[in-house]
């Protein structure tokens, strides 16, 4: 996949068994995302946004079809290989921040680097840089419980980008934030996208986010209903 595509899905189907019946969460999704895009999956609740992000993040596997991310076919990866892909190349941001409460801001951001086996000096440098990106260098010692929602989500962004991943997947990152904080973290992510070339793929139904997206992919009932690139955005 040397054609500048970081994500390519082909006839992607995800069916959840539900007792006797089953739910088709994704239905024949064909999608390409280029390296460096700042794109979003939009659509009502239950349209399959989270399911798609989870598969692209190698946390879940498709029922049929193929999902190729950073040159890896998700459906063929072992647990360990999938973890390795996430570890090296993918950053996650969640609606509910999901910081580890017993660790300080610094330690939360440090965690991915420990998994990657960074040296202490390299860790310190990377964490410092990541915290500066999100304007939280002065809160390194704080615990998550001492932070506001906006600050918590900034820490989560720092944690996602500290290892300089190629791809960041953000599942409704503003759903628990007010307008000011929502725009704030989106501007930060735009900066990171521009300066580091990191690809961002959001899921959202929040107008404030959609304003910032350069491409919106609309999902309805697990199908791509619309795919618009906004010129000049």
């Amino acid at each position: 996949m040397n054609d500048g595509m970081i994500i390519r899905t082909t006839s992607l189907v995800k069916i959840y068994p539900l007792g006797e019946q089953s739910i088709t969460a994704l239905d024949d999704v064909n999608l390409d995302v280029r390296t460096g895009e700042f794109a979003g999956l939009v659509g009502p609740s239950g349209s399959g946004k989270t399911t798609l992000l989870n598969i692209l993040g190698s946390l879940d596997v498709p029922t049929r079809g193929s999902a190729e991310v950073l040159g890896e076919r998700i459906e063929t990866l072992s647990h360990r290989k999938a973890a390795d892909l996430r570890n090296r190349h993918i950053g996650f941001i969640f609606q509910t921040f999901n910081l580890l409460p017993v660790y300080s801001v610094y330690e939360n951001v440090e965690f991915p680097l420990l998994l990657l086996g960074f040296s202490p000096a390299a860790r310190r440098k990377a964490i410092q840089a990541a915290l500066e990106w999100v304007h939280l260098a002065d809160r390194a010692k704080s615990r998550p419980s001492q932070l506001s929602g906006g600050q918590s989500q900034r820490v989560a962004i720092a944690r996602a980008i500290v290892k300089k991943p190629a791809l960041v997947l953000a599942d409704e990152p503003t759903a628990n934030l007010d307008a000011e904080n929502s725009h704030g973290i989106l501007r930060t992510m735009e900066d990171i996208n521009r300066e580091l070339g990191t690809t961002f793929l959001f899921s959202t139904h929040d107008g404030k986010v959609i304003q910032h997206l350069r491409r919106t992919i609309t999902l309805v009932d697990g199908r791509v209903a619309k795919d618009e690139v906004r010129s000049g955005a």
């Binding site: 946390l59 360990r80 999938a82 580890l100 998994l115």
Partner: peptide, 16 residues
């Protein structure tokens, strides 16, 4: 389980 979810997402595998 929440914590494990995050750790999985960050790139730990289940065995680890």
């Amino acid at each position: 389980y929440g914590e494990f979810g995050v750790r999985l997402a960050i790139g730990e595998d289940k065995g680890r």
